[in-house]
Design a protein around this nucleic acid. Sequence first.
DNA 1: ATGGGGCTGCTTTTT
DNA 2: GCAGCCCCAT
Length: 792
Amino acid sequence: MNDLNLRYINAKRALFDRANAKLNAKQREAVYTVDGPVLVLAGAGSGKTTVLVRRIVQIIKYGNAYADTRIPFGLTEDKVASLENARSLSDAEIKEILPEFISDPCPPWRMLAITFTNKAAAEIKQRLAAELDDEDAASSIWAGTFHSMCMRILRVNAEAAGLKPGFSVYDTEDTKKALKSAMKSLNIDEKMIPLKSVMNRISRAKEKLKGPQAFIAEADDYRERQIGKIYEKYADDLVASNALDFDDIIMKTVLLLKNYPAVLDKYATQFRYISVDEFQDTNEAQFALVALLSQKNRNIMVVGDDDQSIYRFRGATVENILGFDKNYTDAKVIKLEQNYRSTQHILDAANSIISNNNGRRGKTLWTDNVSGEKIYVRKLANQDSEARFIVETIARMVSREGKSYRDFAVLYRTNVQSNALQTVFAKSAMPYRVLGGVSFSERKEIRDIVAYLQLINNHSDKERLLRIINVPARKIGDRTIDCIEQLAEEQGTDMFSIIENATKYPVLSRSCGSLLGFASLINSLTELSDSLPLDRFVNEVIERSGYRHMLIEGGEPEKERLENLEEFISGVLEYQNREEEPTLTGFLEENALVADVDRYDENADAVVMMTVHSAKGLEFPIVFLPGMEEGIFPGNQAQFDNEELEEERRLAYVAVTRARRAVYMLYTESRMIYGRTVVYTPSRFISEIPGELKDEQTAHMAPYRSPQTGRVYYSESKPAGDMTVRAKRDQQSAPAAREKFEPGDIVEHFSFGRGEVISAKPMGADVLYEIMFDRVGTKKLMATYARLKRSQ
DNA sequence: ATGGGGCTGCTTTTT
DNA sequence: GCAGCCCCAT
């Protein structure tokens, strides 16, 4: 290559570098690596989503322009010089020049980006839309979760996949019930083989693309053969119900692509570029899917972090990321190790913990950020002091350092740990929110109405039929239901057909009236579903099924359920307004695949509490890690199992790397676990952090003092009903005479803001107020700690 | 048909 | 310690 050509290419690349000046060299390398397989090992906080999005945008806008070494015909010295001088132009001017280098760009609809969660998918879509600045282009990119993408393929190819249109998706609870009934019909006792392990085995089998026959063929003991039988029966039931479970969605798609070369060819041709996020969380089926789809164009980029693989228990195989470049020998491997989130001390601590694991690809995070504070390690007397330590530390930092509540996260290993925390937080008047309770769509009334909709959409859906056939009560008893089930099995048809034709079966003569009534209810609603807008239709379902009537009859206790149904209808309305072609099937699919509108509102000013698992991908200025004890974190089950232990260590790595500024690791002398007081030793993960990175102390919490009697209690013996936390400053200053409020009064709270008193219950010398706040909803607060002021 | 009492079992979770 | 589930009693 002559000098002029070389200068041309260098000048062109310099301009692209300018356009991506906000990225570091490694990130840019990933963005410019367009063709062939690429593995991006992205450490925590290394900007992986940015890279993923930028690369897609780069390919759509400029194709392989950066790597392209072709020289335009008739290149002149003047031209090269002007490109070289363009470096000093403004960003906007450079953007004007770049299109002249376009080289084989990819149309957006040939771009596939796969994530695990809807939240991640939404974020990627949103950032793509912003960067492409082209709504249509952004929305034609296939960006979604594994499941949503597979559903899209299955819907179009339902017949080839062995499905009838309008097929249902069973969630975990439906699956559980179906397995239970399969076990019952096979006379397999749950005490012999626990349902949980059956579920797990079958789920693992599906992830390995193993059907019931293959499973049975490989079964080498009685128990395995029994599970094989259950699997077979369950699979038959799913077919009869025209339903898929979550694992089927992936497995059936892979099988479809394997069995129908024409279908595979269509998609493998269409998807010129494939990107997979969180690749360390993929299972075998998901890897097989990606491998099939990319086999033709071989342009596959996977992004992930082997050190953050924390879902082995649900079938994720780290080997997918560890061995990626063995599967794709020509893969380019790029490591993103610069961290933009945390202080160097936090990263050093995380690095030294994770360095105790074997079987890593090996990465060392570093940052330009300050070295920052040391890791605070605090020993507390018990879980109560632990919770109070957290509350008081936060209270102090909020009042003295002007921090917001939202700057703090409490991350624990197991959900049970949140109980003790919540008790203390609830009484402390400190705003907090807990992630991971019963979600909206898991509520009984919502599930019931969704079951009606599912049955209307798919009359074969057995689990949903069983769920609502007698809700509200319509005199169809268990005996009748058993009878119908058996008839359906004998006739090789579904239960609904038996019910419709109840008159034909003498055994059903007694309940014939109720059955025909139910059949005509469902049939008339099915007809109605075509003619009414979705929200009005759902309203009719609630009405005509008698469900609303049932709840109204139920009076006060059922009021909340009624309100939830109203909220559900507004959710339907929201779907209807958003969707171009709203359909019942579409709504149900979204409902099955999209968990609640992500419950975590990042704007609310409240301390957030959740498991370390659910914190993956999030970041917080200050992180508390209670329960850093052997037996909790790492858990008991990991004590003698190295694989488990390494997973726990990765989890600890995830936990520490959530923090931007400070980490508090807490452990106790003793704590209550399952009703027993246990004494655990501090977690090995604490000792795996070098001493010079730690600020280690015993924290002495002030004992409780009863507000009424002034008696001092130590937490273990505190009297029932007195679970107050006293911030230190409160103890020092004698409580001032407190203003009394009555229902209807408007009050001001130092962090919840303005609210109206709903009720006031005297409790000893104190008063428990229920207050409806404008911003944060209804809260119950003790007068002594709420420090309420009259508004105006 | 519904609820209460006793028994069990108990990491992590998205789709 | 507690929630969820099953079974039995009303």
